[in-house]
Design a protein around this nucleic acid. Structure first.
Lengths: 335, 335
DNA sequence: TTGTACGCGTTATCAC
DNA sequence: GTGATAACGCGTACAA
């Protein structure tokens, strides 16, 4: 390992001159800087981030919280694409990314402590139990944080546009002539509440009557549950002509059930997904779904967090909504 | 922020005593240790990893290389599940995970330098261009590394069992009565070569004749290319009765093409995928595919890397193969 | 424009 | 069993 001290010796200057030169300080003359930088490269000098951040109190490192009780969190395309977006933007701006768990070494601990331990400049909470006191403690600390798809009071959050999403879906389905529209929603979260409220509102405005039995509960990303809900809907006397699913994956569970009943999509029943994952585009019939711009969500999360880190005094928390768009596939029949 | 110095003052002991007590050194009496630890907790002490690793030369942090030219790397379930496995095992053993790119801050750099800069104890190369000199430099350095699905000479690698995979697929398809078997493979990589060799070998042993036109090239994870290959196969005079795809996603491209030709699966043509992603299980007909145990691949990669870090002298590089299994779906017809 | 000296928080060595 | 002290590598007042 080679240190600035070695370079200083090799160049016949002091360590501080080397430090300043490497950091392109204007205090150092162009000539000296050039000479030092060149020498440093030749000697294969690599800075030591530990020493640097010990001194500067900055790590250029962002924490990443990704808790998946479902044990396959990262496996969900929606999240992994968000992660990809975060990674791209963080790298672009010269930040690294470190996963933050709720333990340090082998001992249980809080997320906040872990982030502090690693000297994170800020933390992005991609997926977590937002009711967890340890998450709340983190968000309410002085550590800059950005949450995704969950809004803490007065904190910066990046949200997919659930309101617009359900609104557009309902409108489209309505225009296609449907009046008996069922909605299978995910477990009770902020996102779900937004979507549900927006669904009701859109229906109300269009004078669509929504029997309570048309609203079914399932869990995001678990096709089985949406399958069960689908069966219940199909077996109703006055069954819906269109079913809106919590997400594209869940639709697959519904699909199985629909086929079991001998129904065809969209001839016998229309369906709409949510997320617009890759799968939705290659399925046949192509799925009508609301495409969330997950890369953009990730980019924006990283971007805002870095802004917050750089301007801690002037930055005002924001709630940013990332627009998606309706992908009109072939799963909604005109009736 | 509270430092050991503060605790020392509060307890009326020296900093070194506190340090030792917190690290459970046996030099310190049980009583003193208890008192110090308690006080530290009460004061909300959190260690500083920068200071610690500056001194100890250990970071308890693993680097993660994940390069995706395709711009959706993390979005591929195979990789994101591997990542999940790595994360689980690293956390279990008290290691953190940091993404390593080929730049430090805003300046271009090598992976090795980046890993050194962050003081990584080791690096897992999940996905990368293994011909990239920067990757090779990393692997050939003194930095402990583990690669996934690529074998550098005399280095530790975790491989999915491509040999057994293709072998089992061919055997199964053969047993179902197929003799005209086509294989669409991915771009030229280690994995592809292994699979191709194994495919040929299995066919040879079963006396299956493989016309050169039955071997088609596509790219992993890009349905479009597999779609094109599929069309070419379907339009042959003597078309195959079964097509093996590079991966489950690619099969979706083939599916579209097959339906365009008015063929049904498996009545008119049989198909086999590879990977066993979630999708393969919920598709109807359920896809016959070779399931890779990607969580296990991730777990093992982290596990071996940590072993290597802890026993640098005695650890011998290994090539570990993680077994998968054949998922018999409904896409291969008995003929 | 350059150099000196110190401190960031921690651990390791050695003396007591 | 405990304490004093010197590093680890870097950045930055402040001095020159």
């Amino acid at each position: 390992m080679i240190r600035i001290k070695d370079i200083a010796k090799a160049c016949g200057v002091s360590v501080s001159t080397v430090s300043k030169a490497l950091n392109r300080s204007h205090e150092i003359s162009g000539d000296t800087t050039r000479k030092i930088v060149e020498k440093a490269n030749k000697m294969g000098y690599i800075a030591n981030s530990s020493a640097r951040s010990l001194k500067t109190k900055r790590s250029q490192n962002l924490g990443l919280i990704f808790v998946d009780n479902s044990d396959s969190g990262l496996g969900h395309e929606y999240f992994s694409i968000i992660l990809n977006g975060i990674k791209m933007e963080a790298e672009r701006q010269g930040y690294d990314l470190t996963f933050i768990s709720n333990k340090i070494g082998s001992s249980k601990n809080s997320y906040l402590n872990h982030a502090r331990y690693r000297g994170c400049d800020g933390v992005i909470i991609v997926s977590a139990d937002f009711q967890d006191p340890k998450i709340m403690a983190l968000v309410n600390s002085d550590m800059p944080t950005v949450t995704i798809d969950y809004q803490f009071h007065n904190k910066t959050a990046i949200m997919s546009d659930n309101k617009k999403g359900l609104e557009e879906i309902v409108k489209h389905v309505y225009e296609m002539g449907h009046r008996r529209i069922a909605f299978i929603h995910g477990e009770d979260t902020d996102v779900t509440r937004q979507r549900l409220a927006s669904f009701y509102k859109a229906c109300e405005e269009l004078d669509i009557n929504v029997p309570i039995e048309y609203i079914r509960s399932a869990e995001y990303h678990i096709p089985k549950y949406s399958g069960i809900a689908t069966r219940e809907l199909l077996e109703m006397e006055n069954r819906p002509t269109c079913i809106i699913y919590p997400d594209d994956y869940s639709y697959m569970g519904g699909l199985t059930e629909i086929e079991k009943h001998g129904f065809k999509i969209p001839e016998d029943i229309s369906v709409v997904g949510y997320d617009g994952i890759y799968l939705s585009r290659i399925l046949r019939p192509k799925l009508t779904t609301y495409v969330q711009d997950s890369v953009q969500i990730g980019l924006m999360a990283a971007n805002k967090l870095i802004e917050m880190i750089m301007h801690p005094k002037t930055y005002l928390s924001e709630q940013i909504t990332i627009n998606g768009y309706l992908q009109k596939g072939q799963t909604v029949k005109r009736i």
